[in-house]
Design a protein around this nucleic acid. Structure first.
Length: 512
RNA sequence: GCCCCCAUCGUCUAGCGGCCCAGGACACUGGCCUUUCACGCCGGCGACACGGGUUCGAAUCCCGUUGGGGGUACCA
């Protein structure tokens, strides 16, 4: 029953196509930035090396896990274009890929560890442990003291007679544990700093501490890239791996790499409740998956010293875990938006049009499905808005005026301010001029030429004040796509109707 | 308490001993362009936490201090 001598620790030498990484979230809550960043880096690592990404679900905590959360995880992965080779939904040779369905497998491994003497039953309560530390003059906050390590059968029977059910703990080796972290280099944990930890609950159910390394071992995972929060559990996992090797469950230890924390704008760790941590909020605001992936990659990694806008393919081409920065990254919504804006400009115009549609439908600007007239208008309007939007969510405000009936156009208060000394005269003149433009010549260039000559040159009104009232009349807003192009899209009858409507309204207001 | 990680402009970072009195991006800011708003272009502000070493030479290596963060659960 004595533990086996410290096993040598053969670390994986897998390279290239033999590399197997995994993403193994717990389905609790909405996907957040740190989690998704971890998925992305694992994916990039697999794709860069031509290896495999395994997607496993760690749903061992029935109280917190939810099916809804599971589906959100799938949604997030698919939206971002992070595909996996084995795992939930797609299957594979090491399934099932949901831990809630792997109970028998764990019991089998637990039996082997028990027979090998690597885990032992422990009856101490937290209070008893603290009390023993106090009695010995040690800090009561110290962890488990190992006092159940060598219980005799009589002692165990006595505890059971008291009605106590034991948990099972792993025997930690009494030596320093060193490993080469892929992002941080060599890390050593001192002997004795990590107490024997619980791997099986008193009710017989295995804990994350057991199940996570066991599945990694069984699934042949060669590289573990995960959050820094798991750094200090690495010595425990290495110890467990050694035990698994000695009982023949696996034969190598994976390499580990710990990704930096993702912090909120304050400085505090990004909690699941912070809006900026919620991936779907970015999507709702109109982030492109391309922009999101790019920004996520920047949370700890960089493409090059002087280029931070890049494609998914470029990331795969260059990604290397050893280039990941070890210090924590803060989420910066403005920077994320700026990165997204660049991807908006990079999009093929036809594609840009399609990407706007869901946001326009959501806001009720266009119908679902989009009519062919609406679609034609969107296609024509795309070049006007593509260079001036940062987020797809800006589309409704930008384009609404093109889709409402003239009578329903709302001229915002803001658009009624700063219109110059005599906006009625400006509108009157504009109406007169537009009326002279024949329907078949109703194009942006002509409109600009005619209106500029009349209002700017003839009336002597500065361009800003000459076109401001027209913009308000046409779009109902102070800020809009370019005026003449907008008029062209709207057409002659609508343009005139809107100019007249605002003219009449302002004239009436002046009377009163 | 103990263990572990981290430390360059406000933020993300480049830098892995001389190319750096520190480069890029976002933000901020001055200007140009301009029918609004954007885009684009030109310019500005702005950092090696501190103290010791090592070295001909340190942002880069070592030690300490300080400051952040995490772990120390029958959560994951």
């Amino acid at each position: 029953m004595t533990p086996t001598a410290p096993a040598p620790a053969p670390v994986t030498e897998a390279t290239g196509a033999d590399i197997r990484v995994r993403f193994c979230p717990s389905p609790t809550g909405t996907p957040h930035m740190g989690m998704v960043r971890t998925a992305l880096f694992n994916w990039a690592h697999a794709r860069h090396h031509g290896g495999k990404l395994i997607f496993r679900i760690e749903d061992t905590d029935a109280a917190r896990d939810s099916e809804e959360s599971y589906h959100q995880l799938l949604d997030a992965m698919r939206w971002l274009g992070i595909d996996w080779d084995e795992g939930v939904e797609v299957g594979g040779p090491h399934g099932p890929y949901r831990q809630s369905q792997r109970g028998d497998i764990y019991q089998d491994v637990i039996a082997k560890l028990r027979e090998g003497g690597h885990i032992y039953e422990s009856y101490s309560t937290a209070e008893e442990i603290a009390e023993r530390h106090r009695a010995a003059g040690r800090d009561p906050q110290l962890g488990y003291d190992g006092s159940d390590r060598d219980l005799t059968e009589e002692q165990k029977a006595a505890f059971r007679a008291e009605g106590r059910e034991p948990v099972w703990r792993l025997r930690m080796p009494d030596e320093d544990i060193t490993f080469e972290d892929m992002v941080r280099g060599e890390i050593t944990f001192k002997a004795g700093a990590t107490p024997d930890f619980v791997v099986v609950r008193a009710n017989g159910q295995p804990l994350y501490t057991l199940v996570n390394p066991v599945d990694d071992a069984l699934m042949g995972i060669t590289h573990v890239l995960r959050g820094e929060d798991l750094l200090s559990s690495t010595p425990r996992q290495i110890a467990l791996y050694r035990a698994l090797i000695s009982v023949g469950v696996t034969d190598v230890i994976p390499r580990f790499g710990h990704l930096p924390y993702v912090l909120g704008e304050g400085s505090k760790k990004l909690s699941k409740r912070d809006p900026e941590s919620n991936l779907f909020l970015y999507r709702e605001q109109g982030f492109l998956p391309e922009g999101m992936v790019n920004y996520l990659a920047l949370l700890g990694w960089g493409y090059s010293a002087d280029q931070d806008v890049f494609s998914r393919e470029e990331m795969v081409e260059r990604f290397d875990a050893s280039d990941v920065n070890p210090n924590p990254a803060r989420v910066d919504f403005k920077k994320a938006t700026a990165i997204n804006a660049d991807h908006m400009r990079l999009l093929d115009p036809a594609e840009f049009t399609e990407r706007m549609v869901p946001h326009l439908q959501e806001a009720g600007v266009v119908s679902d499905p989009v009519t062919s007239e609406q679609h034609a208008l969107l296609v024509a309007a795309t070049p006007l808005v593509q260079p001036r939007m940062n987020l797809l969510g800006e589309a409704p405000d930008m384009l609404r005026f093109l889709f409402v009936a003239d009578a329903d156009l709302v001229v915002e208060d803001d658009a009624l301010k700063k219109l110059g000394d005599d906006p009625v005269a400006v509108l009157d003149r504009a109406i007169t001029e537009v009326e002279t433009v024949p329907a078949d010549a109703f194009a942006a260039a002509t409109l600009e030429e005619v209106l500029r000559a009349a209002i700017v040159e003839d009336m002597g009104i500065k361009p800003r004040l000459a076109f401001g009232p027209l913009r308000s009349a046409i779009s109902g807003r102070r800020i809009s796509p370019p005026l003449f192009e907008s008029m062209e899209l709207l057409g002659r009858p609508s343009s005139l109707a809107r100019l007249r409507a605002l003219r009449d309204r302002l004239a009436a207001a002046a009377e009163a």
